[in-house]
């Protein structure tokens, strides 16, 4: 613990935790409440990045680079996921002339 640089220690770890929790809750709320598929998508990204932030901050405070490596992977995978996700949304829009997820309720008994 004593090897953590002074610059970083000026801001306590808890601040990062609160921030990422707030971001994550905003993301979850958005996913649950919004109807626009694009907004939902952005909220998912928000949750991902909240996690990324958490990983990075722990990584820094514990002087363990593993967390940062992890974050790189998450960002790469998220980029790929965005490609697919946006393509799906484009297709939904072409078919329904809308991005309202509540219209997509045909898969039921």
């Amino acid at each position: 613990m004593n090897e953590i640089p002074e610059v970083i220690r000026t801001i306590p770890l808890n601040y990062y935790l609160f921030l990422s929790t707030a971001l994550f809750v905003i993301g979850v709320t958005g996913v649950l409440l919004r109807r626009n598929a694009i907004i939902i998508f952005m909220c998912i990204e928000l949750m991902l990045n909240a996690v990324n932030l958490l990983l990075v901050s722990f990584s820094a405070y514990r002087s363990d680079p593993n967390g940062q490596v992890f974050v790189f992977f998450i960002m790469a995978v998220a980029a790929a996921e965005v490609c697919v996700g946006l393509a799906i949304i484009v297709m939904i829009y072409r078919n329904l002339q809308s991005t309202d997820v509540h219209l997509l309720n045909k898969l039921k008994w």
């Binding site: 979850v28 996913v31 649950l32 997820v101 997509l104 309720n105 039921k108 008994w109």
Partner: peptide, 17 residues
């Protein structure tokens, strides 16, 4: 039990969360 499967994604997500 099948009434639970409404087809609306929002309700599934809410349940999950």
């Amino acid at each position: 039990l099948r009434v639970l499967q409404s087809g609306a994604i929002g309700s599934y997500l809410l349940t999950m969360v």
